[in-house]
Design a protein around this nucleic acid. Sequence first.
DNA 1: TTACATAACTAATACGAATTAGTAGCCATT
DNA 2: AATGGCTACTAATTCGTATTAGTTATGTAA
Lengths: 339, 339
Amino acid sequence: MKKRSSVTQKQIAERAGVSQTVVSLALNNSYEIALNDETRQRVVDVATELGYVPQAAAKALVRGHSSNIGLILIQPHYQVFRDPFIPNIITGISGVVRAHDYRLLVEHIDNVNQLHTIPNMLRGGEVDGLVLSTFDTLESIIEPLTKDGYPIIFLDKPAKGHYAVTIDHEFGVRLAASHLLACGHQDVGVIPFSPATPHTLRRLDAFKDAFASAGCPIPEDRVRFGNYDPESGYEAMKTLLQIRPLPSAVFGMNDLMAIGAMRAIHEAGLSIPQDIAVIGYDDMRFAPFTRPTLTTIRAPEVEQGQVAGDALIKRIAGEALAERQISLKPQLIIRESCQ
Amino acid sequence: MKKRSSVTQKQIAERAGVSQTVVSLALNNSYEIALNDETRQRVVDVATELGYVPQAAAKALVRGHSSNIGLILIQPHYQVFRDPFIPNIITGISGVVRAHDYRLLVEHIDNVNQLHTIPNMLRGGEVDGLVLSTFDTLESIIEPLTKDGYPIIFLDKPAKGHYAVTIDHEFGVRLAASHLLACGHQDVGVIPFSPATPHTLRRLDAFKDAFASAGCPIPEDRVRFGNYDPESGYEAMKTLLQIRPLPSAVFGMNDLMAIGAMRAIHEAGLSIPQDIAVIGYDDMRFAPFTRPTLTTIRAPEVEQGQVAGDALIKRIAGEALAERQISLKPQLIIRESCQ
DNA sequence: TTACATAACTAATACGAATTAGTAGCCATT
DNA sequence: AATGGCTACTAATTCGTATTAGTTATGTAA
């Protein structure tokens, strides 16, 4: 790990017969201090001739910021990238970030012992700000950081006062509920996520609440937790199929569990949606190609990434944001499995 | 974008009543220069008390390396993250990277005007090395960099002499071909990718070659290009269904196109695999839950990310690698759609 | 008792770019 | 002819850490 020799402003200065100061001024197009156009051009020419690239570390040190932004993923390792959420977010963020000449540093944290990297990255100046994907609240870690003025954008509902760009999944869940009710389903099964976090539980509550408000409260035996995987949806559905009289529909809280449920239903010799309707959540790419095609909820995740990246960059630049919490709405996609 | 005041070694030095040198030595556990254990401890205590975090930029400047590694994704924007490849690679890399105290910088390049960021990141010292995902050869860009000793690992077959950790997709495709032949299929359709790159064309050739070697050359009208999406597989299959006599199987070069093809087959009132067998590529998560379940090829992408990250870190450390090109083998997953 | 090693430090410098504080030369006022 | 203002630069300093080159005090061997 030796140092790699690289072209410096000093070398350019010698070649061009000027001081390092002039090189810096010329290359940064600074017009605060007057420079002869000829000199300026000569410096630029020498720089390109030598293949000059500024040293990021030196620049960062003297300017006091890194031009990196961080995306922190806090999830158990087995789960990150298993749902399409992260790739979509990265897609959204990375476009924005590059347009503003920032770089994206992706850091994955999968256990509490690694949480210290969050303050370290900010305080160590590795990044100028963070986008934080989390299913847990991290008040004790984040509070001091925001108090110190570090820009942080949450992708999940945080405590009041923090900045956040979230997707209103409770709304999404209510969309699913209303659609089920509109289709005449009064007795439905639900397959939510486990391990149950505050956020996922809130979604479940929203769903239950929607049905309760419509006069069809959901009994506890209609709720069977899965773990994001199709297999878990399959197992959950099998137990739901024991209930008599049979529920007339199921809501899988992600598409993967929903296709698991569909398989269980088919294996039981029942048909979808005639015997049991199915509705999923995510609108993954296979959803229009299941048999029958899957009715589901689409969340604007790429947009979420864009908006979050944008908000972060504004905060870094010191711009005020119109609102601290931006909430994006999911959308109902009606296909064959529930219509 | 003001500078954020942070705790420095100088401040610790003052508080502990020692010189900054001692602080640096104590905090870095250096034993080259003798330090009194008491002093050492006092410095460490003051440091934790003040919440010291070293400035990454200063460290990088003086040490000559950043402790960042870069993952460069070169693909049209509409396509990155649309296949599961990238998330899998990131999963693999990020574990390795964090274990070695590196950070992962993800940079997405979606047009040739941005290619200059590759040399810039290396020459500017933003990263100590790169993992390069590309479907194109970039000789003119990469050559001078490797010549200057910058560590770069390719994820796709590069020119001789470069370091690479690749997946042997030609082998994977031959696996599919052998399985089809073993199942007695002699007249098959293929749905490869378009736009056709050298790499994807090589896969197609491998497939054709396998059939030709078995005495069943594949006529041109059996080859219908798709574009990664299920919809394109659907359309491709529709044209394949016009052929008489009907081919007895199709190979979709990814699972998404394969499920598109399956839909077309079902819509034509044919059954899988009795009338037409289907085989995919990728083993995406829905593959065990299609109807019928999808026979496919699984590529070890997470492992590819791990091995590539590992190789890069070794190269950065100056270690020699046993072999320049490491090739990982895909695996046949037999399910109902072709058995 | 001088020389000499060793422990335990401090001072000074380097890293590369940005920036602040000069400086020299020239022209235009007064 | 002294003053001020401008242009076009240079010199010096700064950022925070690592590292090299001292320095001082103390103990030990000759």
